[in-house]
Simulated scan of single mutants.
Amino acid sequence: MDLKEIQNLIKFVAKSGASEVKLEMEDVKITIRTTSEENKETTIVQQMPLGNAVPAAQPVAQVQQTAAPVAAETSAASSEEDNSKYITIKSPIIGTLYRKPSPDKSNFIEVGDSIKEGDVLCIIEAMKLFNEIESEVSGKIVKVLADDNSPVEFDQPLFLVDPS
């Protein structure tokens, strides 16, 4: 893996909002951690031995790149109070979120739509498998928290639902 590929990986992780990504190949181990307080990604590239002995890994290169802030901060106190009456639907898996069944179709749900248990909310692609994410609650969609065609993490909030 060359330096340009590592830099592209850093940019992808910064855009995705992931807090940590680990990539291990035959002779290279890469860890990318994003720290929100400094808005930096730190990439550590380590050479792993090819033999049977596994000594402590030593860093070969360290690249730091400053990323743009992922989201602007709003008044956190007021938004937490407003959101406390809503149910948050979270991602059950890691993958790429799609809000449409196919590119030429409309979104499964929009803000203001009423949903019931079992309704398909979105699709998350993981390892070339398309998993329909069904609602476990009934209510009205208040807010969509994840963009179409974007990477999502396990337990990442996707939708806010008003159960009343």
Score class of each variant (00 low, 15 high):
Thr42Gly: 06
Thr35Ala: 13
Lys140His: 05
Asn83Trp: 14
Ala53Val: 01
Met48Arg: 10
Val111Cys: 03
Thr66Ala: 02
Asn39Ile: 03
Met48Tyr: 01
Gln62Ala: 12
Gln47Lys: 14
Glu41Gln: 13
Asp148Ala: 11
Arg99Glu: 04
Ser91Ile: 04
Gln64Ser: 13
Gln47Cys: 03
Asn39Gly: 07
Ile109Thr: 02
Ile30Glu: 04
Asn149Lys: 08
Lys128Asp: 05
Ser138Tyr: 03
Ser36Lys: 15
Gln58Lys: 06
Gly95Val: 08
Thr34Met: 03
Gln62Trp: 09
Pro151Leu: 13
Thr35Lys: 11
Glu38Cys: 08
Thr42Arg: 11
Ile133Phe: 07
Gln58Ile: 07
Leu50Asn: 01
Glu136Phe: 07
Asn107Asp: 01
Lys143Gly: 01
Asn52Met: 09
Ala57Lys: 03
Gly95Trp: 06
Lys143Arg: 12
Val111Thr: 14
Ser91Gln: 05
Gln47Met: 10
Glu73Lys: 09
Lys116Thr: 14
Ala56Lys: 05
Ser150Ala: 08
Thr43Lys: 06
Asn131Met: 04
Gly95Cys: 12
Asn39Thr: 01
Ser150Met: 02
Lys143Glu: 15
Ala57Pro: 05
Tyr98Gln: 04
Ala76Asn: 12
Glu81Leu: 14
Glu80Met: 06
Thr96Phe: 05
Pro49Gly: 00
Phe159Asp: 01
Gln156Ile: 00
Glu81Met: 11
Asn149Ala: 14
Ala71Tyr: 05
Ala61Cys: 11
Pro59Lys: 00
Val60His: 14
Lys100Gln: 07
Gln62Val: 15
Asp119Ala: 03
Thr66Glu: 05
Glu117Asp: 01
Ile32Ser: 11
Lys128Ala: 06
Asp82Lys: 15
Leu50Thr: 04
Asn107Gln: 04
Ala146Leu: 08
Glu110His: 09
Pro151Val: 11
Val137Ala: 04
Ala68Tyr: 13
Phe130Lys: 13
Ile89Arg: 03
Leu129Ser: 08
Asn149Leu: 09
Lys143Met: 05
Pro92Cys: 06
Asn52Leu: 09
Val63Lys: 10
Glu134Leu: 10
Lys100Met: 07
Gly95Leu: 09
Leu158Pro: 00
Glu125His: 01
Thr42Gln: 13
Lys116Ser: 14
Ala61Ser: 13
Thr31Leu: 08
Glu134His: 00
Ala67Asn: 06
Glu80Val: 08
Ser84Asn: 12
Glu136Gln: 10
Lys100Phe: 02
Ser114Tyr: 05
Ser84Tyr: 02
Val63Trp: 12
Thr43Leu: 15
Phe108Leu: 03
Asp155His: 09
Val54Phe: 08
Ala146Val: 10
Pro92Trp: 10
Gln62Asn: 13
Asp82Gly: 11
Ala68Met: 14
Asn149Glu: 12
Thr74Tyr: 14
Asp82Pro: 00
Ile141Leu: 15
Thr42Ala: 07
